[in-house]
Design a protein around this nucleic acid. Sequence first.
DNA 1: AATATACTGTGTATTTATTACACTAAGTAA
DNA 2: TTACTTAGTGTAATAAATACACAGTATATT
Lengths: 229, 229
Amino acid sequence: MKEVLPVFNSAVSIDCVLFGFDGGELKILLIERNEEPFKDWWALPGNLVGENESVDQSASRILHELTGLSDIYMEQYYTFGEVDRHPQGRVITVAYYAMLRLGGDKALKPLTTYAKKAQWINVKELPKLGFDHQHIFDKGLEKIKRRIKHLPIAFELLPEKFTLTQVQNVYELILGKKLDKRNFRKKILSFKVLKELDEKQKGVSFRAATLYKFDKRKYAKLFGKEISF
Amino acid sequence: MKEVLPVFNSAVSIDCVLFGFDGGELKILLIERNEEPFKDWWALPGNLVGENESVDQSASRILHELTGLSDIYMEQYYTFGEVDRHPQGRVITVAYYAMLRLGGDKALKPLTTYAKKAQWINVKELPKLGFDHQHIFDKGLEKIKRRIKHLPIAFELLPEKFTLTQVQNVYELILGKKLDKRNFRKKILSFKVLKELDEKQKGVSFRAATLYKFDKRKYAKLFGKEISF
DNA sequence: AATATACTGTGTATTTATTACACTAAGTAA
DNA sequence: TTACTTAGTGTAATAAATACACAGTATATT
């Protein structure tokens, strides 16, 4: 503290909800804690904000430490500031989410020591989480539900080339409801952010679907416009 | 700190954007600072989060200290965590907004000592603000723009009884654009949250408009539904 | 009393978006 | 060849959004 702020001991931390789409399921990355409090519990990846990093930088650092990934767009969605949310003292936490492309082959061994392991876990089968992390997750899921209705963030979860059925799966998983196939396709194509490829899905034991890719340039133009599902 | 968190000196503060509608204009409550840094500058009302209060409680306290008002719904909208945003040390600030009903007669002398005075200032004529408060305000305005499209928060700014033209004014001020009168009325009435009163506007030098009031019960049912302007 | 003023209050036609709904086509596997 | 599984497609009906103009009424002015 350079001068005169009347502070008490407290800290600010970051917690991240990292979404991924894998095996047809919506997953998040959880860590198994290696330290007290909540040693051996599952929790959202998080850490204290360092003295010389902004909260955004801190979130990116945590993501990087955990996955090796950089340059991922993370969105801050809420700050949790209950007095007793951390058993060891006053810790206010700023929550972020990010959508990650799981190539299927990504190495996701934790690179830090604060976790025993990290694992992608189906959001439908979450274990009991330490701290108030279930609450933080719930709010994060709510947030992306609202968000996916207005921006096609589903593509951030998908591989570079994907089928329309995969896109629809992501929407259905996030929104928690079935959508009509014909209407869904009509709508998603109407945004004109998908480019149809001259290529088909491989390795499936049925008729292969056409692959599409996402056109970032056109997507950028979409910002600000109201779209909805 | 009860135990072992490796903290450095830092603090968390709250800053509030308090919106009011008065004299046909959208205003916010600003304070003129009495202390360094930014002594004699205008700034958003704010303060440090206390050791034994949650960030939500802290926001309510600040609002109460400044206006005497309690039980006002405040919405947290973003946390600003740049390293150098406060010249005297590391201060991360959590921003809230609230919509206040200015009866026209509200006493709004600041009750704290940290401000010389507090004043409702037209958002179109904001003075230069201390810290990163212009940025915090900008984000807050953006937020209520998005929000008013989906929930009729305009009513929180209006007196108990109001005319449809007043409602439209609030929408136009927040959205920053003119709306068609007939379409606006059709839409706002379609939500069925307004009760037409058997009473007319008074003290105007032209045809008096019908007064309406807001039906909270019906409003509650509206939550979750998607509405848009 | 007549007139000017300023805002209130109303309807319809057009376009666009949303919803509901079912079958054939194509590839794979047995 | 057949059975299986998913891909891919269109239309009609309904609902929502938009564009657009003038007569009605209270007050103030002369």
